[in-house]
Design a protein around this nucleic acid. Structure first.
Lengths: 271, 271
DNA sequence: CGGGGGGTTGATGGACATCAACATCTGTGG
DNA sequence: CCACAGATGTTGATGTCCATCAACCCCCCG
């Protein structure tokens, strides 16, 4: 049975048997769909059954205010979250007081998925804005994965994409200068937001402060300011008043050496 | 059934039923054990059955010469490797020719585990020395995980540890200066090697060149040389002729702000 | 009206890169 | 056996990117 599940995952079965569930759930209007659903549908078409399962995972809504940390307690708190609205970042604090933001989560992203499976690292989560998230109990998640392999595949893709982003982040900090790092980050964020309908080719709204950018990119806020100025004055991007506006997308891509291959995974799923 | 497996993983069952297999495999002498076995046994005692399964995963031995890349082709090549002997690094090349090493694998580590589940990132693997690795077919791996939940838990711990190391690496490059970065890396490596019996408290053998260190730490080889000199002259570590020798372990830990918590995960497994 | 969060700009210094030269050691072919 | 090339390591001189320190701005909100 475990092997059968694996075959589903790898081969992305051509004809799974969903008949028994057919019609049990209503098709949703596109505008009703959660960001996660929008994102996953880019990777794989979903049956109504699968959409229903996804929708049921969103049932337990919770809200959190900005700024107050959501530290994931492991052990007792065996739940993950699907971010529905708002922005979050996961970071790690150094003994000397500096912090490094490891990743930024936007609507449609998972939060603490790994912490459900294993109580892992000691990083914290800070809501950047007020957020709404669906709490997903471990049991519900695993049941969903076991019963809808196609959904499981899509979620695995999402997780692997997150990992690829962390690696890309590492490369950026290690081997790109400040300008390229900033450009790369703004472009990556744009691609991610576009996937959930929160960005156009011209730009997007972005609640991050320059301090956030500094902690993401491994710079100081002062230098972030200068970098942003230079990008603005050279006519490539403007970051101002919570809005990122691309003026010369192509030149920006060139500066950042941005290759979105690791984001637009076109793999087995689409077979 | 899926939920039962999950309970095993989280609760680390107190009395799983192994009777039907008891005695099917011979107990191995400690010196016979593979590095992976040694590592996993730190996290959880293994029954003879589990040791047998582990041993069977090591059957398909393959060797590779140093320097010639093991690029993981995804798709067709649905296999992972357990590194038995030698050192490997996984890296990512930039368009401008610089490279960033994401991680170093030592005996007992998995190679391309994620690539089995999903064809992920585009990083490559370079054997640093001549290596021996056991090829693990996807099917065998999943079967082993499904049949021996305690082993599955242990492997999940290993994977999560790898992820935590990448995050720690990111933080280091973003927020530590060259000296601390180097000290941290050498200490981390020491801890990892000690877990598979390849390091003592006084030091360990290390085939990395200063160029490798540079690509790992996001520095230039020239600067790596200076940093090493300074660490040597201040009496903390010597890196020379393929040997890392700790002279003042405590002071090094202090300089690196090295907190091995993320390596020595003492969690549910030990309950 | 005061205070705080965010942003902007200048002056200065330090950490690290870059360039360049040279030392060792290994292997290789004449 | 020697000459030579290539990989690795070592050290100095110089420059640059970015951090640090220090003002000062605007705007919002109590």
């Amino acid at each position: 049975m475990q092997e059968a599940l694996y075959d589903e995952l790898i081969e992305s079965s051509t004809g799974a048997d969903f008949d028994s569930f057919a019609g049990a759930e209503r098709a949703m209007n596109v505008t009703d769909q959660s960001p996660l659903t929008r994102k996953l549908m880019v990777f794989a078409a979903m049956s109504e059954t699968e959409l229903g399962v996804l929708e049921r995972l969103h049932r337990r809504r919770r809200s959190f205010v900005a700024g107050q940390d959501l530290v994931h307690q492991g052990q007792t708190e065996q739940a993950a979250y699907i971010l529905a609205k708002g922005w979050v970042c996961s970071y790690k604090l150094q003994p000397d007081g500096t912090r490094q933001i490891v990743d930024v989560q936007i609507p449609g992203d998972f939060l603490g998925l790994r912490s459900v499976l294993l109580r892992t690292s000691d990083h914290s989560f800070e809501p950047i804005t007020e957020i709404e998230a669906a709490e997903v109990l471990a049991g519900d998640l695993l049941e969903a994965l076991a019963n809808t392999p196609r959904l499981a595949t899509a979620i695995l893709w999402a997780v692997s994409r997150d990992e690829a982003m962390v690696v890309e982040h590492l490369v950026g900090i290690g081997r790109r200068d400040a300008d390229a790092r900033m450009a790369h980050f703004l472009l990556e964020l744009g691609s991610r937001l576009a996937l959930v309908g929160m960005a156009g080719k011209d730009g997007y709204d972005c609640p991050l402060t320059q301090y956030h950018l500094a902690d993401i990119l491994g710079l100081t806020a002062v230098h972030v300011n200068r970098v942003l100025r230079q990008l603005r004055e050279s006519g490539m991007v403007t970051f101002r008043d919570g809005r990122v506006a691309f003026h010369d997308h192509d030149r920006l891509v060139e500066l950042a050496e941005f290759d979105p291959a690791y984001l637009d995974q076109t793999g087995p799923l689409l077979k």
